[in-house]
């Protein structure tokens, strides 16, 4: 069920985060570089150590963009606690989820950097 919701969130962000209309971007500044955003993988990690390291890296990327989510902060804490309690399966699952949330936060940051002006009251 949790995976289902995550996939829904990913699809939601994909839909919301479509490329901005040309007019709004041109009004601000022409894009000078095109690069690929992080990939959001829902594949389960093979070990807790890998899952935890990947999640931390993803959270750091979102933090650097100023768009970190509290959900990934809590999930990574819960993952560490589960690992301490010896529940490896739960720890991997929570760390993977933390990484997904953080990657979505980064995608949100990239999208908003281009589209926030669409929300500005201009009338």
């Amino acid at each position: 069920m949790r995976l289902f919701f995550l996939i829904l969130i990913v699809i939601f962000f994909a839909a919301c985060g479509g490329a901005p209309d040309e007019e709004s971007v041109a009004a601000v500044a022409p894009p000078q570089e095109v690069s690929e955003t992080p990939t959001v993988s829902t594949e389960r990690s093979t070990s807790y150590e890998v899952a935890y390291a990947d999640a931390l890296a993803a959270i750091q990327r979102a933090t650097a963009k100023g768009h970190a989510w509290t959900t990934s902060d809590q999930l990574i804490k819960d993952a560490a606690e589960a690992a301490q309690n010896g529940d490896s399966a739960l720890a991997i699952s929570l760390a993977d989820e933390a990484r997904i949330h953080a990657d979505l936060a980064s995608i949100q940051a990239d999208r908003e950097a281009l589209t926030w002006r669409d929300n500005v009251i201009t009338q």
Partner: peptide, 17 residues
């Protein structure tokens, strides 16, 4: 492996504009 790739535009010099 279910992965979704997104294409994003990184605008250099955005602030100046």
């Amino acid at each position: 492996n279910r992965s979704i790739s997104f294409l994003s535009l990184f605008v250099l010099g955005f602030g100046v504009g």
